[in-house]
Design a binder for these strands. Structure first.
Lengths: 290, 290
DNA sequence: TAATTCGTGCAACAAATGTTTCATGGCCGA
DNA sequence: TCGGCCATGAAACATTTGTTGCACGAATTA
Protein backbone atom coordinates (compact mmCIF):
# COMPACT_ATOMS: atom_id res chain seq x y z
CA UNK A 1 0.00 0.00 0.00
CA UNK A 2 1.26 3.43 -0.84
CA UNK A 3 2.60 5.49 1.98
CA UNK A 4 -0.03 8.13 2.69
CA UNK A 5 0.58 11.79 3.27
CA UNK A 6 1.58 12.60 6.85
CA UNK A 7 -0.23 15.88 6.85
CA UNK A 8 -1.98 15.58 10.18
CA UNK A 9 -1.47 13.42 13.25
CA UNK A 10 -5.14 12.66 13.03
CA UNK A 11 -4.77 11.21 9.57
CA UNK A 12 -1.85 9.08 10.68
CA UNK A 13 -4.07 7.82 13.43
CA UNK A 14 -6.91 7.01 11.08
CA UNK A 15 -4.67 5.20 8.68
CA UNK A 16 -3.13 3.01 11.33
CA UNK A 17 -6.42 2.44 13.07
CA UNK A 18 -7.70 -0.67 11.31
CA UNK A 19 -4.51 -2.62 11.97
CA UNK A 20 -4.58 -1.92 15.71
CA UNK A 21 -5.81 -4.10 18.57
CA UNK A 22 -9.43 -3.73 19.48
CA UNK A 23 -9.04 -1.69 22.64
CA UNK A 24 -6.59 0.60 20.97
CA UNK A 25 -9.05 1.11 18.15
CA UNK A 26 -11.69 2.19 20.63
CA UNK A 27 -9.35 4.66 22.20
CA UNK A 28 -8.17 5.86 18.81
CA UNK A 29 -11.70 6.46 17.65
CA UNK A 30 -12.40 8.35 20.83
CA UNK A 31 -9.42 10.57 20.24
CA UNK A 32 -10.41 11.19 16.64
CA UNK A 33 -13.93 12.07 17.66
CA UNK A 34 -12.87 14.29 20.57
CA UNK A 35 -9.67 15.79 19.30
CA UNK A 36 -10.33 19.10 21.01
CA UNK A 37 -10.59 17.45 24.41
CA UNK A 38 -7.55 15.40 23.56
CA UNK A 39 -5.48 18.57 23.33
CA UNK A 40 -6.92 20.25 26.39
CA UNK A 41 -7.77 17.68 29.00
CA UNK A 42 -5.53 15.18 30.71
CA UNK A 43 -4.96 11.62 29.67
CA UNK A 44 -6.55 10.12 32.77
CA UNK A 45 -9.51 12.40 32.32
CA UNK A 46 -10.04 11.20 28.79
CA UNK A 47 -9.59 7.62 29.90
CA UNK A 48 -12.32 8.01 32.47
CA UNK A 49 -14.72 9.46 29.94
CA UNK A 50 -13.86 6.87 27.32
CA UNK A 51 -14.16 4.10 29.84
CA UNK A 52 -10.69 2.86 29.06
CA UNK A 53 -7.40 2.33 30.79
CA UNK A 54 -5.09 5.35 30.89
CA UNK A 55 -2.26 3.17 29.68
CA UNK A 56 -4.13 2.55 26.47
CA UNK A 57 -3.52 6.14 25.44
CA UNK A 58 0.20 5.83 25.88
CA UNK A 59 0.18 2.59 23.98
CA UNK A 60 -1.88 4.10 21.19
CA UNK A 61 0.59 6.93 20.77
CA UNK A 62 3.51 4.54 20.64
CA UNK A 63 1.69 2.27 18.22
CA UNK A 64 1.48 5.01 15.62
CA UNK A 65 5.05 6.11 15.93
CA UNK A 66 5.18 8.69 18.69
CA UNK A 67 7.41 8.50 21.73
CA UNK A 68 4.40 8.75 24.00
CA UNK A 69 1.07 10.40 24.61
CA UNK A 70 2.76 13.71 25.28
CA UNK A 71 4.31 13.70 21.84
CA UNK A 72 1.03 12.80 20.17
CA UNK A 73 -0.83 15.51 22.00
CA UNK A 74 1.85 18.05 21.16
CA UNK A 75 1.50 17.17 17.49
CA UNK A 76 -2.27 17.39 17.71
CA UNK A 77 -2.03 20.73 19.47
CA UNK A 78 0.22 22.15 16.79
CA UNK A 79 -1.95 20.88 13.97
CA UNK A 80 -4.96 22.54 15.53
CA UNK A 81 -3.28 25.88 16.14
CA UNK A 82 -5.72 28.43 14.76
CA UNK A 83 -3.23 31.01 13.59
CA UNK A 84 -2.52 29.10 10.42
CA UNK A 85 -6.14 28.77 9.45
CA UNK A 86 -7.82 32.02 10.31
CA UNK A 87 -6.39 34.63 8.00
CA UNK A 88 -8.12 34.27 4.67
CA UNK A 89 -6.26 37.20 3.23
CA UNK A 90 -3.03 35.46 3.99
CA UNK A 91 -3.73 33.22 1.06
CA UNK A 92 -3.08 36.12 -1.24
CA UNK A 93 0.62 35.48 -0.89
CA UNK A 94 0.30 32.08 -2.52
CA UNK A 95 1.83 32.15 -5.93
CA UNK A 96 -0.15 31.34 -9.02
CA UNK A 97 2.21 28.52 -9.81
CA UNK A 98 3.78 25.82 -7.74
CA UNK A 99 2.15 23.30 -5.47
CA UNK A 100 -0.12 25.83 -3.80
CA UNK A 101 -1.80 27.02 -6.96
CA UNK A 102 -4.39 24.27 -6.78
CA UNK A 103 -5.04 24.91 -3.12
CA UNK A 104 -5.70 28.56 -3.86
CA UNK A 105 -7.98 27.55 -6.70
CA UNK A 106 -10.06 25.32 -4.47
CA UNK A 107 -10.26 27.90 -1.72
CA UNK A 108 -11.38 30.57 -4.13
CA UNK A 109 -13.94 28.26 -5.64
CA UNK A 110 -15.42 27.38 -2.27
CA UNK A 111 -15.51 30.96 -1.19
CA UNK A 112 -17.16 32.04 -4.43
CA UNK A 113 -19.82 29.39 -4.11
CA UNK A 114 -20.45 30.41 -0.53
CA UNK A 115 -21.16 33.91 -1.76
CA UNK A 116 -23.73 32.62 -4.19
CA UNK A 117 -25.93 30.80 -1.72
CA UNK A 118 -27.37 33.75 0.22
CA UNK A 119 -28.30 35.36 -3.10
CA UNK A 120 -30.86 32.66 -3.73
CA UNK A 121 -34.34 34.04 -3.32
CA UNK A 122 -36.24 32.28 -0.59
CA UNK A 123 -39.88 33.28 -1.27
CA UNK A 124 -40.14 31.48 -4.63
CA UNK A 125 -38.89 28.33 -2.95
CA UNK A 126 -41.65 28.53 -0.39
CA UNK A 127 -44.26 29.11 -3.09
CA UNK A 128 -42.97 26.18 -5.07
CA UNK A 129 -43.08 24.05 -1.97
CA UNK A 130 -46.76 24.94 -1.53
CA UNK A 131 -47.37 23.81 -5.09
CA UNK A 132 -45.61 20.56 -4.33
CA UNK A 133 -47.62 20.16 -1.19
CA UNK A 134 -50.84 20.50 -3.14
CA UNK A 135 -49.75 18.28 -6.01
CA UNK A 136 -51.30 14.88 -6.30
CA UNK A 137 -48.17 13.62 -7.90
CA UNK A 138 -44.63 14.93 -8.37
CA UNK A 139 -42.39 14.26 -11.34
CA UNK A 140 -38.73 15.15 -11.29
CA UNK A 141 -36.39 15.62 -14.23
CA UNK A 142 -32.72 16.41 -14.63
CA UNK A 143 -30.13 15.33 -17.14
CA UNK A 144 -26.39 15.17 -17.22
CA UNK A 145 -24.93 16.74 -14.11
CA UNK A 146 -28.39 17.89 -13.05
CA UNK A 147 -29.45 14.32 -12.69
CA UNK A 148 -27.71 14.19 -9.33
CA UNK A 149 -29.86 17.07 -8.13
CA UNK A 150 -32.99 15.41 -9.47
CA UNK A 151 -32.18 12.16 -7.70
CA UNK A 152 -31.47 13.88 -4.42
CA UNK A 153 -34.80 15.68 -4.61
CA UNK A 154 -36.51 12.45 -5.53
CA UNK A 155 -34.90 10.67 -2.63
CA UNK A 156 -35.75 13.22 0.00
CA UNK A 157 -39.31 13.74 -1.14
CA UNK A 158 -39.93 10.03 -1.25
CA UNK A 159 -38.91 9.77 2.39
CA UNK A 160 -42.27 11.19 3.37
CA UNK A 161 -44.30 10.89 0.17
CA UNK A 162 -43.25 7.56 -1.31
CA UNK A 163 -46.12 6.88 -3.67
CA UNK A 164 -46.49 10.32 -5.14
CA UNK A 165 -42.97 11.12 -6.24
CA UNK A 166 -41.27 9.75 -9.29
CA UNK A 167 -38.20 10.42 -11.41
CA UNK A 168 -38.98 10.81 -15.07
CA UNK A 169 -37.48 8.01 -17.07
CA UNK A 170 -36.88 5.43 -14.39
CA UNK A 171 -39.74 3.12 -15.26
CA UNK A 172 -39.14 3.11 -18.98
CA UNK A 173 -38.39 5.58 -21.75
CA UNK A 174 -38.93 9.19 -20.87
CA UNK A 175 -41.59 9.51 -23.52
CA UNK A 176 -43.83 7.13 -21.66
CA UNK A 177 -43.80 9.36 -18.59
CA UNK A 178 -44.31 12.49 -20.65
CA UNK A 179 -47.73 11.27 -21.63
CA UNK A 180 -48.65 10.61 -18.04
CA UNK A 181 -48.58 14.20 -16.85
CA UNK A 182 -51.96 15.37 -15.62
CA UNK A 183 -53.40 18.60 -14.28
CA UNK A 184 -53.01 18.78 -10.55
CA UNK A 185 -49.61 17.16 -10.74
CA UNK A 186 -46.29 18.94 -10.42
CA UNK A 187 -43.28 18.56 -12.69
CA UNK A 188 -39.84 19.71 -11.60
CA UNK A 189 -37.23 20.31 -14.27
CA UNK A 190 -33.63 21.08 -13.39
CA UNK A 191 -31.15 22.39 -15.90
CA UNK A 192 -28.67 25.06 -16.86
CA UNK A 193 -26.63 26.12 -19.84
CA UNK A 194 -26.14 24.28 -22.11
CA UNK A 195 -29.70 23.04 -21.93
CA UNK A 196 -30.52 19.56 -23.07
CA UNK A 197 -33.30 18.93 -25.53
CA UNK A 198 -34.71 16.26 -23.30
CA UNK A 199 -35.30 18.59 -20.37
CA UNK A 200 -36.96 21.14 -22.61
CA UNK A 201 -39.24 18.45 -23.99
CA UNK A 202 -40.27 17.48 -20.48
CA UNK A 203 -41.00 21.08 -19.61
CA UNK A 204 -43.09 21.57 -22.70
CA UNK A 205 -45.01 18.37 -22.11
CA UNK A 206 -45.76 19.42 -18.57
CA UNK A 207 -46.98 22.80 -19.68
CA UNK A 208 -49.12 21.29 -22.39
CA UNK A 209 -50.65 18.76 -20.00
CA UNK A 210 -51.64 21.51 -17.61
CA UNK A 211 -49.40 20.28 -14.84
CA UNK A 212 -47.68 22.71 -12.48
CA UNK A 213 -44.20 23.29 -13.85
CA UNK A 214 -41.35 24.11 -11.48
CA UNK A 215 -38.04 25.00 -13.09
CA UNK A 216 -34.76 25.06 -11.24
CA UNK A 217 -32.42 26.84 -13.59
CA UNK A 218 -29.59 29.33 -13.92
CA UNK A 219 -31.53 31.88 -15.89
CA UNK A 220 -35.02 33.23 -16.40
CA UNK A 221 -34.48 32.82 -20.11
CA UNK A 222 -33.74 29.13 -19.88
CA UNK A 223 -35.94 27.22 -22.32
CA UNK A 224 -37.44 25.04 -19.64
CA UNK A 225 -38.39 28.11 -17.68
CA UNK A 226 -40.74 29.28 -20.37
CA UNK A 227 -44.26 28.86 -19.19
CA UNK A 228 -43.11 27.60 -15.81
CA UNK A 229 -45.32 28.36 -12.84
CA UNK A 230 -42.32 28.66 -10.55
CA UNK A 231 -38.74 29.44 -11.44
CA UNK A 232 -36.01 28.96 -8.85
CA UNK A 233 -32.76 30.59 -9.85
CA UNK A 234 -29.23 29.74 -8.83
CA UNK A 235 -25.81 30.80 -10.10
CA UNK A 236 -24.14 27.98 -11.93
CA UNK A 237 -21.20 29.94 -13.24
CA UNK A 238 -20.39 31.81 -10.08
CA UNK A 239 -17.29 29.82 -9.38
CA UNK A 240 -14.05 30.09 -11.34
CA UNK A 241 -14.07 26.38 -11.96
CA UNK A 242 -14.33 24.17 -14.97
CA UNK A 243 -17.73 22.64 -14.41
CA UNK A 244 -20.84 24.62 -13.57
CA UNK A 245 -21.40 24.83 -9.85
CA UNK A 246 -24.23 22.73 -8.50
CA UNK A 247 -24.14 23.78 -4.88
CA UNK A 248 -26.84 26.35 -5.53
CA UNK A 249 -29.11 23.83 -7.18
CA UNK A 250 -28.53 21.37 -4.38
CA UNK A 251 -29.29 24.00 -1.78
CA UNK A 252 -32.51 24.89 -3.56
CA UNK A 253 -33.51 21.26 -3.84
CA UNK A 254 -32.91 20.60 -0.18
CA UNK A 255 -34.70 23.74 0.90
CA UNK A 256 -37.58 22.79 -1.32
CA UNK A 257 -37.77 19.38 0.26
CA UNK A 258 -37.47 20.82 3.75
CA UNK A 259 -40.28 23.31 3.31
CA UNK A 260 -42.50 20.76 1.61
CA UNK A 261 -41.91 18.46 4.52
CA UNK A 262 -42.70 21.27 6.91
CA UNK A 263 -45.98 21.91 5.11
CA UNK A 264 -46.80 18.24 5.37
CA UNK A 265 -47.21 18.60 9.12
CA UNK A 266 -47.67 15.65 11.44
CA UNK A 267 -48.65 13.33 8.60
CA UNK A 268 -45.37 13.87 6.80
CA UNK A 269 -43.47 13.53 10.05
CA UNK A 270 -45.18 10.27 10.82
CA UNK A 271 -44.46 9.03 7.35
CA UNK A 272 -40.79 9.94 7.62
CA UNK A 273 -40.50 8.25 10.98
CA UNK A 274 -42.11 5.18 9.53
CA UNK A 275 -39.63 5.10 6.67
CA UNK A 276 -36.69 5.59 9.02
CA UNK A 277 -37.95 2.86 11.29
CA UNK A 278 -38.16 0.50 8.36
CA UNK A 279 -34.61 1.27 7.33
CA UNK A 280 -33.38 0.82 10.86
CA UNK A 281 -35.18 -2.48 11.14
CA UNK A 282 -33.47 -3.62 7.97
CA UNK A 283 -30.22 -2.72 9.70
CA UNK A 284 -29.30 -0.41 6.90
CA UNK A 285 -27.36 1.78 9.26
CA UNK A 286 -24.35 1.17 11.40
CA UNK A 287 -25.61 1.25 14.95
CA UNK A 288 -24.70 4.20 17.09
CA UNK A 289 -21.55 3.57 19.00
CA UNK A 290 -20.61 4.70 22.49
CA UNK B 1 -15.99 29.65 46.15
CA UNK B 2 -18.28 30.92 43.46
CA UNK B 3 -17.00 31.14 39.93
CA UNK B 4 -18.07 34.14 37.89
CA UNK B 5 -20.46 33.25 35.11
CA UNK B 6 -19.51 36.19 32.96
CA UNK B 7 -19.53 36.33 29.22
CA UNK B 8 -16.02 35.35 28.35
CA UNK B 9 -13.01 34.76 30.56
CA UNK B 10 -10.94 36.82 28.19
CA UNK B 11 -13.21 39.83 28.45
CA UNK B 12 -13.21 39.58 32.22
CA UNK B 13 -9.47 39.58 32.04
CA UNK B 14 -9.30 42.64 29.82
CA UNK B 15 -11.69 44.55 32.04
CA UNK B 16 -9.80 43.84 35.22
CA UNK B 17 -6.43 44.35 33.60
CA UNK B 18 -5.81 48.06 34.25
CA UNK B 19 -6.39 47.79 37.97
CA UNK B 20 -3.85 45.05 38.43
CA UNK B 21 -0.23 45.16 39.61
CA UNK B 22 2.32 45.71 36.92
CA UNK B 23 3.66 42.18 36.74
CA UNK B 24 0.20 40.73 36.67
CA UNK B 25 -0.70 43.05 33.82
CA UNK B 26 2.18 41.72 31.79
CA UNK B 27 1.13 38.17 32.44
CA UNK B 28 -2.48 39.00 31.73
CA UNK B 29 -1.63 40.56 28.42
CA UNK B 30 0.44 37.55 27.55
CA UNK B 31 -2.47 35.26 28.26
CA UNK B 32 -4.84 37.41 26.24
CA UNK B 33 -2.44 37.44 23.32
CA UNK B 34 -1.70 33.71 23.47
CA UNK B 35 -4.98 32.26 24.61
CA UNK B 36 -4.54 29.15 22.50
CA UNK B 37 -1.27 28.30 24.22
CA UNK B 38 -2.88 29.17 27.53
CA UNK B 39 -5.35 26.35 27.05
CA UNK B 40 -2.89 23.79 25.75
CA UNK B 41 0.49 24.31 27.37
CA UNK B 42 1.42 24.17 31.01
CA UNK B 43 1.62 27.08 33.38
CA UNK B 44 5.34 26.77 33.92
CA UNK B 45 5.84 26.54 30.19
CA UNK B 46 3.97 29.75 29.64
CA UNK B 47 5.88 31.41 32.46
CA UNK B 48 9.16 30.51 30.82
CA UNK B 49 8.08 31.94 27.50
CA UNK B 50 6.62 35.06 29.05
CA UNK B 51 9.69 35.52 31.19
CA UNK B 52 7.62 35.60 34.33
CA UNK B 53 7.23 33.68 37.52
CA UNK B 54 4.89 30.70 37.44
CA UNK B 55 3.21 31.93 40.58
CA UNK B 56 2.14 35.05 38.74
CA UNK B 57 -0.34 32.99 36.73
CA UNK B 58 -1.99 31.63 39.81
CA UNK B 59 -2.14 35.09 41.29
CA UNK B 60 -3.61 36.47 38.10
CA UNK B 61 -6.38 33.91 38.09
CA UNK B 62 -7.23 34.63 41.69
CA UNK B 63 -7.17 38.35 41.06
CA UNK B 64 -9.93 37.97 38.48
CA UNK B 65 -12.05 35.85 40.74
CA UNK B 66 -11.18 32.29 39.89
CA UNK B 67 -10.10 29.73 42.43
CA UNK B 68 -6.83 29.26 40.62
CA UNK B 69 -5.10 28.94 37.29
CA UNK B 70 -6.76 25.60 36.68
CA UNK B 71 -10.19 27.16 36.95
CA UNK B 72 -9.26 30.00 34.62
CA UNK B 73 -7.84 27.65 32.04
CA UNK B 74 -10.89 25.42 32.24
CA UNK B 75 -13.10 28.42 31.55
CA UNK B 76 -10.88 29.46 28.67
CA UNK B 77 -10.96 25.95 27.27
CA UNK B 78 -14.72 25.79 27.35
CA UNK B 79 -15.12 29.19 25.79
CA UNK B 80 -12.89 28.15 22.93
CA UNK B 81 -14.54 24.80 22.32
CA UNK B 82 -15.24 24.64 18.59
CA UNK B 83 -18.35 22.47 18.75
CA UNK B 84 -20.51 25.47 19.49
CA UNK B 85 -21.38 26.42 15.93
CA UNK B 86 -23.63 29.17 17.17
CA UNK B 87 -22.73 32.51 15.72
CA UNK B 88 -26.26 32.30 14.31
CA UNK B 89 -28.19 31.66 17.47
CA UNK B 90 -28.75 35.37 17.87
CA UNK B 91 -30.90 35.53 14.80
CA UNK B 92 -32.85 32.43 15.75
CA UNK B 93 -35.38 34.68 17.41
CA UNK B 94 -37.07 35.40 14.12
CA UNK B 95 -40.75 34.65 14.36
CA UNK B 96 -41.62 31.02 14.31
CA UNK B 97 -45.15 31.51 13.10
CA UNK B 98 -46.84 33.50 10.41
CA UNK B 99 -46.56 33.29 6.65
CA UNK B 100 -42.93 34.33 6.65
CA UNK B 101 -41.75 31.62 8.97
CA UNK B 102 -40.83 29.33 6.09
CA UNK B 103 -39.08 32.09 4.25
CA UNK B 104 -36.98 32.81 7.30
CA UNK B 105 -36.25 29.13 7.60
CA UNK B 106 -34.98 28.90 4.05
CA UNK B 107 -32.91 32.04 4.38
CA UNK B 108 -31.30 30.80 7.56
CA UNK B 109 -30.60 27.46 6.01
CA UNK B 110 -28.95 28.97 2.96
CA UNK B 111 -26.89 31.33 5.05
CA UNK B 112 -25.78 28.59 7.37
CA UNK B 113 -24.72 26.43 4.48
CA UNK B 114 -22.83 29.32 2.99
CA UNK B 115 -20.85 29.63 6.19
CA UNK B 116 -19.90 25.99 6.04
CA UNK B 117 -18.28 26.05 2.63
CA UNK B 118 -15.21 28.18 3.38
CA UNK B 119 -14.51 25.96 6.36
CA UNK B 120 -13.75 23.05 4.07
CA UNK B 121 -10.03 22.36 4.04
CA UNK B 122 -8.59 22.74 0.58
CA UNK B 123 -5.20 20.96 0.85
CA UNK B 124 -6.66 17.50 1.44
CA UNK B 125 -8.79 17.93 -1.67
CA UNK B 126 -5.73 18.65 -3.75
CA UNK B 127 -3.92 15.66 -2.29
CA UNK B 128 -6.88 13.45 -3.02
CA UNK B 129 -7.02 14.78 -6.56
CA UNK B 130 -3.38 13.77 -7.03
CA UNK B 131 -4.29 10.30 -5.88
CA UNK B 132 -7.12 10.22 -8.40
CA UNK B 133 -4.80 11.43 -11.09
CA UNK B 134 -2.41 8.59 -10.41
CA UNK B 135 -5.09 5.94 -10.09
CA UNK B 136 -5.45 3.43 -12.86
CA UNK B 137 -9.12 3.15 -12.11
CA UNK B 138 -11.60 5.05 -9.97
CA UNK B 139 -14.55 3.56 -8.12
CA UNK B 140 -17.22 5.73 -6.58
CA UNK B 141 -19.69 4.81 -3.85
CA UNK B 142 -22.52 6.59 -2.11
CA UNK B 143 -25.84 5.40 -0.77
CA UNK B 144 -29.11 7.03 0.06
CA UNK B 145 -28.86 10.79 -0.27
CA UNK B 146 -25.15 10.50 -0.88
CA UNK B 147 -25.82 8.65 -4.09
CA UNK B 148 -26.54 11.95 -5.77
CA UNK B 149 -23.06 13.15 -4.88
CA UNK B 150 -21.54 9.91 -6.10
CA UNK B 151 -23.32 10.16 -9.39
CA UNK B 152 -22.30 13.74 -9.92
CA UNK B 153 -18.69 12.88 -9.29
CA UNK B 154 -18.98 9.90 -11.58
CA UNK B 155 -20.47 12.06 -14.29
CA UNK B 156 -17.89 14.80 -14.16
CA UNK B 157 -14.91 12.50 -13.95
CA UNK B 158 -16.17 10.44 -16.85
CA UNK B 159 -16.25 13.54 -19.00
CA UNK B 160 -12.49 13.33 -19.34
CA UNK B 161 -11.67 9.83 -18.12
CA UNK B 162 -14.52 7.71 -19.46
CA UNK B 163 -13.00 4.26 -19.27
CA UNK B 164 -11.42 4.52 -15.85
CA UNK B 165 -14.31 5.71 -13.73
CA UNK B 166 -17.13 3.58 -12.48
CA UNK B 167 -19.92 3.73 -9.94
CA UNK B 168 -19.94 0.78 -7.60
CA UNK B 169 -23.03 -1.31 -8.11
CA UNK B 170 -24.11 -0.17 -11.56
CA UNK B 171 -23.02 -3.23 -13.47
CA UNK B 172 -24.40 -5.78 -11.05
CA UNK B 173 -24.54 -6.39 -7.32
CA UNK B 174 -22.14 -4.34 -5.24
CA UNK B 175 -20.39 -7.45 -4.06
CA UNK B 176 -19.16 -8.15 -7.56
CA UNK B 177 -17.38 -4.82 -7.69
CA UNK B 178 -15.97 -5.18 -4.20
CA UNK B 179 -13.87 -8.08 -5.37
CA UNK B 180 -12.55 -6.10 -8.30
CA UNK B 181 -10.62 -3.53 -6.29
CA UNK B 182 -6.91 -3.65 -6.99
CA UNK B 183 -3.84 -1.85 -5.72
CA UNK B 184 -3.18 1.23 -7.78
CA UNK B 185 -6.86 1.95 -8.05
CA UNK B 186 -8.78 4.55 -6.09
CA UNK B 187 -12.06 4.08 -4.27
CA UNK B 188 -14.17 7.04 -3.22
CA UNK B 189 -16.75 6.53 -0.49
CA UNK B 190 -19.24 9.23 0.41
CA UNK B 191 -21.33 9.11 3.57
CA UNK B 192 -22.43 10.77 6.76
CA UNK B 193 -24.34 9.96 9.91
CA UNK B 194 -26.18 7.65 10.03
CA UNK B 195 -23.72 5.55 8.12
CA UNK B 196 -24.92 2.70 5.97
CA UNK B 197 -23.46 -0.74 6.35
CA UNK B 198 -22.96 -0.95 2.61
CA UNK B 199 -20.67 2.06 2.45
CA UNK B 200 -18.58 0.77 5.33
CA UNK B 201 -18.26 -2.57 3.58
CA UNK B 202 -16.99 -0.87 0.45
CA UNK B 203 -14.45 1.11 2.44
CA UNK B 204 -13.19 -1.98 4.19
CA UNK B 205 -12.95 -3.90 0.93
CA UNK B 206 -10.96 -1.08 -0.62
CA UNK B 207 -8.61 -0.93 2.32
CA UNK B 208 -8.16 -4.66 2.31
CA UNK B 209 -7.48 -4.75 -1.41
CA UNK B 210 -4.74 -2.16 -1.03
CA UNK B 211 -6.54 0.40 -3.13
CA UNK B 212 -6.30 4.08 -2.32
CA UNK B 213 -9.30 4.95 -0.20
CA UNK B 214 -10.78 8.45 -0.33
CA UNK B 215 -13.56 9.19 2.13
CA UNK B 216 -15.89 12.16 1.85
CA UNK B 217 -17.61 12.29 5.22
CA UNK B 218 -18.92 14.51 7.96
CA UNK B 219 -16.56 13.31 10.65
CA UNK B 220 -13.09 11.93 11.12
CA UNK B 221 -14.65 9.23 13.23
CA UNK B 222 -16.91 8.03 10.45
CA UNK B 223 -16.50 4.28 10.01
CA UNK B 224 -15.65 4.59 6.35
CA UNK B 225 -12.90 7.05 7.19
CA UNK B 226 -10.95 4.47 9.13
CA UNK B 227 -7.91 3.47 7.20
CA UNK B 228 -8.68 6.00 4.50
CA UNK B 229 -5.70 7.53 2.74
CA UNK B 230 -7.58 10.80 2.29
CA UNK B 231 -10.49 12.17 4.26
CA UNK B 232 -12.41 15.19 3.02
CA UNK B 233 -14.64 16.69 5.65
CA UNK B 234 -17.82 18.70 5.28
CA UNK B 235 -20.49 19.80 7.72
CA UNK B 236 -23.69 17.89 7.15
CA UNK B 237 -25.56 19.11 10.19
CA UNK B 238 -24.59 22.76 9.97
CA UNK B 239 -27.95 23.84 8.70
CA UNK B 240 -31.07 24.01 10.84
CA UNK B 241 -32.97 21.83 8.41
CA UNK B 242 -34.55 18.46 8.48
CA UNK B 243 -32.23 16.62 6.13
CA UNK B 244 -28.47 16.67 6.37
CA UNK B 245 -26.97 19.31 4.15
CA UNK B 246 -25.24 18.08 1.03
CA UNK B 247 -23.92 21.35 -0.34
CA UNK B 248 -20.58 20.75 1.35
CA UNK B 249 -20.27 17.30 -0.13
CA UNK B 250 -21.23 18.58 -3.57
CA UNK B 251 -18.72 21.39 -3.35
CA UNK B 252 -16.00 18.94 -2.37
CA UNK B 253 -16.94 16.59 -5.19
CA UNK B 254 -16.86 19.35 -7.77
CA UNK B 255 -13.58 20.75 -6.48
CA UNK B 256 -12.13 17.28 -6.56
CA UNK B 257 -13.20 16.83 -10.15
CA UNK B 258 -11.91 20.25 -11.11
CA UNK B 259 -8.46 19.74 -9.64
CA UNK B 260 -8.22 16.24 -11.08
CA UNK B 261 -9.09 17.68 -14.44
CA UNK B 262 -6.48 20.37 -13.97
CA UNK B 263 -3.85 17.76 -13.20
CA UNK B 264 -4.82 15.90 -16.33
CA UNK B 265 -3.37 18.70 -18.42
CA UNK B 266 -3.82 18.90 -22.19
CA UNK B 267 -4.76 15.25 -22.45
CA UNK B 268 -7.74 15.68 -20.16
CA UNK B 269 -8.74 18.85 -21.92
CA UNK B 270 -8.63 17.18 -25.27
CA UNK B 271 -10.69 14.34 -23.92
CA UNK B 272 -13.31 16.67 -22.54
CA UNK B 273 -13.55 18.56 -25.81
CA UNK B 274 -13.97 15.31 -27.62
CA UNK B 275 -16.81 14.29 -25.35
CA UNK B 276 -18.49 17.65 -25.69
CA UNK B 277 -18.16 17.50 -29.46
CA UNK B 278 -19.82 14.13 -29.50
CA UNK B 279 -22.72 15.36 -27.39
CA UNK B 280 -23.14 18.40 -29.58
CA UNK B 281 -23.10 16.25 -32.72
CA UNK B 282 -25.85 14.14 -31.22
CA UNK B 283 -27.76 17.37 -30.77
CA UNK B 284 -28.11 16.76 -27.10
CA UNK B 285 -28.10 20.43 -26.41
CA UNK B 286 -30.41 23.18 -27.42
CA UNK B 287 -28.50 25.37 -29.84
CA UNK B 288 -27.60 28.82 -28.66
CA UNK B 289 -30.34 31.17 -29.57
CA UNK B 290 -30.21 34.87 -30.27
C1' DT C 1 -2.14 -30.52 24.31
C1' DA C 2 1.62 -27.58 25.47
C1' DA C 3 4.21 -23.59 24.49
C1' DT C 4 4.13 -19.07 23.20
C1' DT C 5 2.82 -14.75 21.85
C1' DC C 6 -0.12 -10.99 22.32
C1' DG C 7 -3.54 -7.87 24.27
C1' DT C 8 -5.18 -5.88 28.48
C1' DG C 9 -5.99 -4.09 33.27
C1' DC C 10 -3.86 -2.90 37.57
C1' DA C 11 -0.72 -0.67 40.45
C1' DA C 12 3.51 1.53 41.49
C1' DC C 13 6.86 4.78 39.75
C1' DA C 14 9.29 9.19 38.65
C1' DA C 15 8.46 13.48 36.66
C1' DA C 16 5.88 17.49 36.16
C1' DT C 17 2.07 20.34 37.50
C1' DG C 18 -0.35 24.06 40.19
C1' DT C 19 -0.28 25.94 44.65
C1' DT C 20 1.44 27.75 48.80
C1' DT C 21 4.71 29.56 51.84
C1' DC C 22 8.48 32.37 52.94
C1' DA C 23 12.01 35.88 52.38
C1' DT C 24 13.26 40.02 50.11
C1' DG C 25 12.92 44.68 48.52
C1' DG C 26 10.58 48.80 47.35
C1' DC C 27 6.87 52.10 48.50
C1' DC C 28 4.12 55.21 51.20
C1' DG C 29 2.37 57.27 55.52
C1' DA C 30 3.53 58.44 60.24
C1' DT D 1 13.69 57.40 60.17
C1' DC D 2 10.71 53.92 61.23
C1' DG D 3 6.92 50.51 60.55
C1' DG D 4 3.59 48.48 57.89
C1' DC D 5 2.07 47.14 53.41
C1' DC D 6 2.27 45.17 49.03
C1' DA D 7 4.41 43.30 44.98
C1' DT D 8 7.63 39.95 43.57
C1' DG D 9 10.78 35.90 43.03
C1' DA D 10 12.50 31.46 44.76
C1' DA D 11 11.83 27.30 46.84
C1' DA D 12 9.11 23.59 49.12
C1' DC D 13 4.68 21.40 49.07
C1' DA D 14 0.97 18.01 47.91
C1' DT D 15 -1.28 16.49 43.82
C1' DT D 16 -1.68 14.99 39.47
C1' DT D 17 0.39 13.67 35.36
C1' DG D 18 2.31 10.25 31.91
C1' DT D 19 4.80 6.11 32.02
C1' DT D 20 6.29 1.37 32.89
C1' DG D 21 6.65 -3.17 35.00
C1' DC D 22 3.95 -7.08 36.12
C1' DA D 23 0.34 -10.58 36.12
C1' DC D 24 -3.50 -12.73 34.08
C1' DG D 25 -6.18 -14.56 30.16
C1' DA D 26 -7.21 -15.28 25.42
C1' DA D 27 -5.74 -16.41 20.99
C1' DT D 28 -2.25 -18.61 18.10
C1' DT D 29 1.19 -21.94 16.89
C1' DA D 30 3.97 -26.14 17.15
Amino acid sequence: MAEPAKSSPLSELRIALPSLPMRLQEVGRFVAANDYDATTRSMRDLAAEAGADPAAFTRLAKAIGYSGWDALRAALTESRRPSQISPFSGRAKSRRHGPNADVALVSDKLEAEAMGLPRIAAPPIVEAARALHDAKRIWITGYRSCRSVAELLNYELRLFRPEQVQLVGTSGPDDLDLGAFRPGEAVIVIGFLPYTHASVRVAQAAHRAGATLIAIADSLSAPMAEGADHVLLFEAASSPGFFPSLTGAIAIAQSLAAVTFSLGGPAAKKRLEHTEARLTAASTYVSEKG
